[in-house]
Design a protein around this nucleic acid. Sequence first.
DNA 1: ATTGATATGTTATAACATTGCACATTACAA
DNA 2: TTGTAATGTGCAATGTTATAACATATCAAT
Lengths: 159, 159
Amino acid sequence: MNAIGFPTHDHSHCIADALKAAETLCAQRKLQFTPVRRRVLEILLQEHRALGAYGILAELAKDGLGSQPPAVYRALDFLVQNGLAHRIEQLNAYTACVHADRDHAPAFLVCRGCKAVAEAETELNQGRLGIAARHSGFVIERIVVEAEGLCPACAEGSA
Amino acid sequence: MNAIGFPTHDHSHCIADALKAAETLCAQRKLQFTPVRRRVLEILLQEHRALGAYGILAELAKDGLGSQPPAVYRALDFLVQNGLAHRIEQLNAYTACVHADRDHAPAFLVCRGCKAVAEAETELNQGRLGIAARHSGFVIERIVVEAEGLCPACAEGSA
DNA sequence: ATTGATATGTTATAACATTGCACATTACAA
DNA sequence: TTGTAATGTGCAATGTTATAACATATCAAT
Ligand SMILES: [Zn+2]
Ligand SMILES: [Zn+2]
Ligand SMILES: [Zn+2]
Ligand SMILES: [Zn+2]
C-alpha cells in the first residue's frame, strides 16, 4: 500500500502484513508480542484512523483481554515505544504505523472530517525549526508534525 | 526579545509589550479584552513555558476571577482563536504567543527538562508533508509542529 | 525452592475538557 | 434613553484521557 495519501488498497493484506512484520520485529528484538499487544495493534490496523484509548479498550474488553484503562495504556506504550504505533497528539489518540520496520520520524495528515490518518515522513532537524534549534543549542530528540485539514473525499463533500 | 531560542531578555518589558499589543489588537478587531482574558494572558506571559488549564485556573481563582474550568477554557479559547496564545498539543497545555500581531503558523521547541517553550515559525505546506498533501489532494488548514528535546541549560545539567 | 524479570489484574484517582442553563454585561439601533 | 440581541460569566454536573499504587501471575535462571 501507499503510505502517503488516501489511496484505496487491499486492506486485508495491509493488516496481515503489518501483523506479520510486527511478529518478526518482536522476535528479532526478543520482545513479547503478547495477546493483548497483538490485539491492540490489530484493532488499530482495522482502519487507517486514530482511535482513542477508551475506544480500543472497549474492543479489548469484548475479547476478555482487559477491562481497565491500564491494560490498553500499557499495550499502547509498548507499541509506541517500539515504533509499531504512533500517538496523534492533536487527538489524544493512536494509530498503527504503516512501516514499522524502518526507523523514522513520522508526520501525519489528519482529516478533520472523517478522522482518517495518513502517515508520511519528516526529518528531525528540518526547516526553520531545525535552524532555530541549532542556533540556540536546543537538542531535538523527537518531533511532532501533524497537519489538520480535509482529505479529498471530505473536501468534495463540503464543496 | 528573540522569539527563537532560549536567550535571556528583559522579561518585564516582554510582558508589558505583549499585553499592550493584545490591547491594541483587540481594539482594532472590536474584541472584548475582558479582565479574565487579560489576566489569563498575563499568567501565560509570566513565563515562557506551557501551563496547564488547571494551573492557570488556580492563579485566576486567587484573583477571584473565576473558579470553574469553563472560565479558563473560555478565556483560552478566545486567546488561541485570536492568535494571542497557542496550545501545545503534546502537553495539553498553553503558552502565550510571542508575536501575536503577525499572522503565522507557529512551531515550537519544547524542553522536556524544564518545560520551557520557544516559538518559531513554519510554513503550512512545507517539506515532505506538503508534498504528500499536494500529491493526494489533501488540503492542509493547520499544522502542528512541536519539537521535544533539551534546552541548552538542561542539556548541560544532564551531561 | 528461591529469586528476579516481565506482564497483567484491580482499584482508585489525577488531569484535562465540555455541556447546559441561568444571570449579567455590553453593544447598538430604534 | 430604552429595548433588544449578542456576548460574556457563574455554577453544577458530567465526560474524557491518563496514571499511581498495589497485588498477582508466569516463567526462566540460579
Ligand atoms: Zn510510522
Ligand atoms: Zn476525510
Ligand atoms: Zn505565535
Ligand atoms: Zn530546559
